[in-house]
Nucleic acid binder design. Structure first.
Lengths: 345, 345
DNA sequence: TTGTAGGCGTTATCAT
DNA sequence: ATGATAACGCCTACAA
């Protein structure tokens, strides 16, 4: 109980929370001194029980070891922290059951909101979340079902198309594609963009080999090895994520091929690391900071306004050309590394 | 309130928690059915208020975007989750004030324990933590002060020595070193190992250039550019972290140098990505899983036993030789990529 | 402007 | 074996 220096608990609360009632400056001072002296810390658990707010959010990602999700997590955490929220982080390790387990764990802990980057297009825990009335947002994915919550993601189709068009402009004739699992709407939309670009350019319908493999550099390497050993006329690859592209680089070395001379590459995401590969990655940059900020904003807005989802929010992407597509390597300035790694240029 | 199906709240609690009192099978059944039917979720906030346990831990890392910390975080989260704990994650972004702010935020939220990877050798929030009596563990760092908590880290000096000795065995004569900031005891111990190896081999005292720069690939690149443009007799570099080594690779390309022919490299950490660079990184692997497991164990043990720190726990490291030091590239088997990326071989 | 008291949903003790 | 009840620490409506 917060009974300090002969004042009532209520007053202490008013002082520490700046309201909801005013308190005389003298008493205020007395309370603050007592707080200081006793090292008193208000118990937020008790406060939470009263107010029904824990000031913490839950975030479940498929794999925090993947730099794209790591950067997304960092931005989300940044925004949350600024707003006074702490972040519970869960790793689904690409396992839907585990994802659900985390959702349960976070609901148990009464998070004020939940941000989910689902492992794939379906979230079994959706109705459980709805039942608790916890606001939630799906990030970087498009959900299949009808009881969908707010969703925030990049313009994946457009990005895939831009990337592929750029490779075509470089004169590439046989452009393969390495993407994420087919069930993932974000990467499969990028594939759609790739295909659209090929069709628009008048290439024959089935003109490029396609591999849909797990995210991550290891799978990227294997897919590239597979494509390139079977098709010796491929001269470019659109890779649906930077991490996979790193694996592709490795595959090229193993096959004694050179990028961009033998194989040109454009990938997707725009993680910071894409600036420091050899050659540096031409990539479709997602507005990672924006995605995060909007996700949190929607989440907190939901609590205030009881506002409904009203369809997915789609953000524009930005093709950044560097060395891997055949464009000249941009000279590396320290400004790049410090302020805007992977950003516009 | 948990008043279900005409039973008292207490009984519901006993059923759901399996104790501490026995309850008749019939009532038990009745309660469980009611729980199911009403979709009742016990409020853990209220439980926490009663029991003084939130079943959540706090983790503050310098930068979750750095793959080494990301992997560490993943392992910690894994162990915590298995034990029923959720993890609050905080990013200090290499800023001590922010680190302290996170510690405060987590203490406010009554975490049952705190794992800290401090930005540098001193933790201003230490006494605040002590005052609350929250168990805490310092990971991957050695603290200077005397009021130190439990600490878990790798044998950095030995690792640095092993790495450097290996480069010497390869016949390298002028071995430079790129390390983390001097205030960080872990990387500065690796530097000590580097120096010990040079001395033991009878090299002249100041035989290799040394740069102590921030962690991360961008700083690594710049340090390498600096060293190699000033010293054209350097034929090897011991790099104190894998991430920095990635930047060094980039620098080599920019300078038209080849690894390992012109410059041999051994780095430190053993992150998964080290397997897929070109050439693959020879690196001193830290037992990341073990570090995490022990940190959590110590933390929870502290709560039980009220056991004292009794000095840092130092784990052995393991030199994994791959292509970058001049050893033959190990053929890449999919077993590597799937089960033990970056592990022993 | 300040003191008092009720209640948030649990858990644990006491009594039945 | 179970029902009633106090207490955890805070917030806030109400009374003074």
């Amino acid at each position: 109980m917060a009974r300090l220096a002969g004042t009532s608990p209520a007053v202490v609360s008013y002082v520490l929370n700046n309201g909801p009632r005013r308190v005389a400056p003298a008493t205020r001072e007395r309370v603050l001194r007592a707080v200081e002296q006793l090292g008193y810390r208000p118990n937020r658990i008790a406060a939470s029980l009263r107010t029904n707010r824990t000031m913490s959010l839950g975030l479940v990602v498929p794999d925090n070891t993947n730099p794209y999700f790591a950067e997304l997590a960092r931005e989300i955490e940044e925004v949350a922290f600024e707003t006074g929220y702490a972040l519970l982080l869960g790793n689904a390790t690409d396992d839907v059951d585990r994802e659900s387990a985390y959702v349960q764990a976070f609901l148990d802990r009464c998070v004020d909101g939940l941000i989910l980057i689902p492992v794939h297009g379906v979230v079994p825990a959706a109705e459980e979340i709805a039942r608790t009335g916890t606001p939630w947002v799906v990030l970087d994915r498009l959900l299949e079902g009808r009881d969908a919550p707010a969703q925030v993601l990049s313009d994946n189709q457009r990005g895939g198309q831009m990337a592929t068009e750029h490779l075509i402009e470089h004169g590439r004739k046989k452009i393969a594609c390495i993407s994420g699992p087919r069930e993932m709407r974000n990467t499969s939309d990028r594939v759609r963009g790739w295909r659209d670009a090929l069709n628009n350019a008048g290439f024959d319908a089935d003109s490029g080999p396609l591999r849909e493999v797990p995210l991550g550099r290891f799978a990227g390497r294997e897919a590239a090895l597979d494509i390139l050993t079977r098709n010796n006329d491929v001269d470019a690859i659109f890779v649906a994520s930077d991490e996979q592209a790193v694996g592709v680089f490795r595959a090229l070395t193993e096959l004694n091929l050179t990028c961009p001379r033998d194989i040109a590459l454009v990938s997707f995401d725009g993680i910071a690391a894409s600036l420091l590969t050899t050659p540096s990655l031409s990539t479709v940059c997602q507005p990672i900071g924006e995605l995060a900020r909007i996700a949190v904003t929607l989440l907190l807005g939901q609590r205030e306004n009881h506002a409904s989802p009203q369809g997915p929010t789609v953000l524009p992407v930005d093709l950044v050309t560097r060395g891997s597509c055949g464009c000249p390597e941009t000279p590396f300035s320290s400004a790049n590394s410090a302020s805007t790694p992977g950003g516009k240029q």
